[in-house]
Design a protein around this nucleic acid. Structure first.
Lengths: 133, 133
DNA sequence: TCCTTTGTCTACCTATATAGTAGACAAACA
DNA sequence: TGTTTGTCTACTATATAGGTAGACAAAGGA
């Protein structure tokens, strides 16, 4: 039931950028220094965020990363779905990543899992990066 | 955020046994036939359940599997923890499988994740196999 | 006692995901 | 033109997911 480091690190990087968004482009060294994350690995993760247009980048001296949109317009749900996929406990109850599984034969478990899916996704949908700085 | 087939199949097997517990030992063929699961793989999963004393087995003709305790004494939380580990979205907020992660540096995310952990684990703790037949 | 029917155990396997690392390259900018 | 940043492609090690194969053990019936 747990997230991978991809989601965790992406969320941390976005929080860090949100916190410094007025100032300047933040360097990747600053982010990985702050949280003690491998630099080369974080580059990888941050490139997903750039390709999905959550952040803007600039090269060269005084370059770095910053948010491409206001922090209150980026939900944690989107970031997790981008990095890790489904928020639901099984694909059989996932809205974005639906797939058939044998669990569908048991209605009552399905209902419990749907309830959990709803709780998590509503919560994560409402939760914006701006709520976390 | 999703469970593996180990948890899914274990829960299905237990539901099936609970439903037939008065009658007889159920054969593994019956279970995997019911849900369309690989027999050899299900054997594997079911052996975890036996070693953890959730089910009793009998060999030979008229052998099979049955619950080792009442279905209302087996929670879904235990089964998921046995098969897949933590119910929490990150080990940093897990009670049973705690580990340090960089996320601990951000208090607000931690609180949201703790809330989700509580919701899931209370729900799964209260949910018994007997509720699912 | 032997045969059939079940479960048990050990080992093996393949594909994918996870969590990185290495290094050449591109663009700012001073 | 050199330094400082990010970009891209490739590579790697280890674990996990999801199985399969086959010899073996025990229960029970003929």
């Amino acid at each position: 039931m747990k997230l991978t480091t991809k989601s965790e690190y992406a969320i941390l990087a976005l929080i860090y950028m949100a916190r410094n968004n007025d100032k300047h482009f933040v360097k990747i060294e600053d982010i990985c220094g702050q949280y003690n994350i491998s630099k080369k690995y974080l580059e990888h993760i941050v490139s997903f965020l750039r390709k999905a247009r959550y952040i803007r980048t600039k090269r060269g001296a005084s370059g770095g990363y910053r948010l491409a949109r206001p922090a209150d317009k980026i939900s944690v749900a989107e970031i997790i779905r981008l990095m890790d996929g489904a928020l639901a406990p099984t694909l059989a109850v996932s809205k974005y990543f639906f797939e058939h599984t044998p669990l569908e034969a048991e209605r009552k478990v399905m209902n419990v899992f749907k309830d959990i899916r709803d709780y998590i996704s509503e919560k994560m949908e409402r939760l914006k990066i701006s709520d976390l700085v």
